[in-house]
Design a protein around this nucleic acid. Structure first.
Lengths: 195, 195
DNA sequence: GTATTTTTGGATCGATTGTTCCATATTTAT
DNA sequence: ATAAATATGGAACAATCGATCCAAAAATAC
């Protein structure tokens, strides 16, 4: 089986760089020039390896989602309790208000907000990614109920929606320049509602 | 004082049409072609009357903010109580999940999410608009405290941040395709936290 | 070494971006 | 009627958009 000339770049690294561009600029505003510069590959290589801008975005968003969910799963496992995981996640996000990471927001919520319900593949992928976050919160709530930190009689799916809504809102609040104090106060109110 | 040839269009109506385009597509994705088509004016007239795309957006967002705040103020005044106003606002938004209005979201939160902390005029105007929403919630919370519906000992500014966060999150949730049931359930949890 | 396969660099494509410019049209002031 | 002032329509601008094409480069297979 003939192979031909090998790739001069790592597709994984290239996608990771593209992800950063989409993260910082959004899908529509990220130009192929920006992407090529960040990925350090030629125009031909991009279209040869990834098809087009839309497919590259789908790969980048998928990668972001997988990385995020995996990281949160690990954090959840390492936490003393599911409730502590949820509280830590929200408090850490609020505490990080002034970082450039906070200014970027979350690629998933950014994409959901930008692409809305357009019906094309990027829009659907964004909705799938939001659903993945909701599912992770759902799992955490169920675990917290088993651990006795959240009343078992409450609707776990509803609380998962509530936490997804709250995290999305927190990210928007931070994007609008909210201080760590303002964000932290609101987050405590969100968490109070959990118990 | 000489006046010259009068405008062949209404600047107010033109801005209103431009607002719709920015609302549906976002600042960056709204092209001047789209704007001209919606405003029904010529290219020259746009630049003559509004300067450029950025200034037109600033006018459109400012108009949107003024209209929204005025409408909410009227609704608040007409409501039997400030708490009823807040509850109605959130419940109505969630109930409207499947409408095309919900798919558009809110221009203010859309802009805050898209423009983030870029530091330019559109970005700053978006932050100002979010602050206006927070202030309106602040006023409503203070009134609800006077009316005895919210414990007067609680931090009104914090609750205003909480409500702003919640509304922003609700809009993102709806943009990702959440059902009226899912959104409604999460909203009830948000409102439970108020009392 | 020759043939084959795949990647790469770079030119190039038509379309679109936001913006400017100018001649023309239309109004008011005198 | 004439002059001044303003608005309009449309051509044109350079820059950039996403995408394609082709020859040269670099690997493997025989």
């Amino acid at each position: 089986m003939t192979r031909g000339r090998p790739l001069a770049f790592s597709p994984d690294q290239a996608i990771a760089q593209a992800m950063q561009v989409f993260w910082a600029q959004g899908y529509n505003s990220a130009s192929t020039r920006d992407l090529l510069a960040a990925m350090q590959i030629s125009r031909s290589s991009l279209y040869q390896a990834f098809g087009n801008k839309e497919q590259l975005f789908l790969e980048a968003l998928h990668r972001y989602r997988d990385n995020l969910v995996a990281r949160l799963q690990r954090t959840l496992t390492a936490s003393p309790s599911a409730l502590a995981f949820i509280e830590g996640l929200f408090r850490d996000t609020a505490r990080d208000a002034c970082s450039e990471r906070a200014a970027l927001g979350c690629l998933i919520f950014n994409s959901a907000s930008e692409l809305g319900q357009r019906g094309d593949a990027p829009s659907r992928e964004a909705a799938v990614a939001v659903a993945a976050i909701r599912q992770l919160f759902h799992q955490a709530v169920l675990q917290a109920q088993e651990e006795g930190d959240i009343d078992a009689g409450r609707d776990a799916a509803m609380l998962a929606n509530y936490l997804t809504l709250s995290m999305a809102g927190l990210r928007t609040l931070l994007k609008s320049g909210a201080s760590a104090e303002d964000a932290g106060g609101a987050v405590e109110q969100v968490l109070t509602g959990l118990r």
